[in-house]
Design a binder for these strands. Sequence first.
DNA 1: GCGGCCGTTTACGTTAACGTAAGCTTTGGC
DNA 2: GCCAAAGCTTACGTTAACGTAAACGGCCGC
Lengths: 137, 137
Amino acid sequence: MTGKTYSISDLASEFGVTTRTIRFYEEKGLVVPLRQGQKRLYSGADRVRIKLILRGKRIGMTLQECVDFIDMYDPEHNNAEQLQALIEDVKGRRERLLQQKKDIDDMLAGLDEVQALCEASLADSRGRTATPDPRKP
Amino acid sequence: MTGKTYSISDLASEFGVTTRTIRFYEEKGLVVPLRQGQKRLYSGADRVRIKLILRGKRIGMTLQECVDFIDMYDPEHNNAEQLQALIEDVKGRRERLLQQKKDIDDMLAGLDEVQALCEASLADSRGRTATPDPRKP
DNA sequence: GCGGCCGTTTACGTTAACGTAAGCTTTGGC
DNA sequence: GCCAAAGCTTACGTTAACGTAAACGGCCGC
């Protein structure tokens, strides 16, 4: 079976990007859709590739890093030397990802703090203006 | 007490960036160090600010987003309206951060997978060439 | 048959975040 | 006293990742 296919605007609207963006990715060789006549025809695999690219972008990777990441999966790694290099690469990437995760946790903690301050401040101002504290004598 | 201070190259080397970068942040108003004469003199607070900026950058925030984030802490938010808006802002940021965290976990899982494949492949090739499997009859 | 859409190509424009270079003080060390 | 290192300012250059615009082809609903 040939599998489902997508038009460029299908994918653009699904992922919330412009068609220009997707064509740009093609210019850079990140995706190479088939054509029916003039028009681009995206396969499921193409769709996943774009999805992975956008995932990478969300955490601040460049497009090049995104492809590098994706290309780690397909085994153009024949000899032991290349495999070792890839493992080293994986190691480095893991470290960076873990650092990012830590950064995010720190920022989430910061948000909790900010929100708590806000809510306290709101409760306080409401207490002083509108509704008198029912616990008062 | 006046607290510890830092030269621009102190901070640059500590954070692994160039002095140009730090001056650029000043151009953009992200840090405003004191001066002694001509030279910039960074306080502990300045240092933290830069640290937070770089943290934001690591997870793909723009410099503007970084300052916005940092500025959430200091309460220029007087009235209830502003506080509510800030809480909404926090909500949005939290969602994005959680999404990013999910993205990272997915990518970490991918790395595990890649590494497992690599190691299996290495073990296999070693098994076929150098050391015969000792468990063989 | 034609007005809208969707799609295509080509090409120039834009923004963020620095890099790089030149030319000029300032300052600590010998 | 002098030189190298560190700092400063000013200004132009660069890269990534699209945005925007113009100009054109195919299709379809009425």
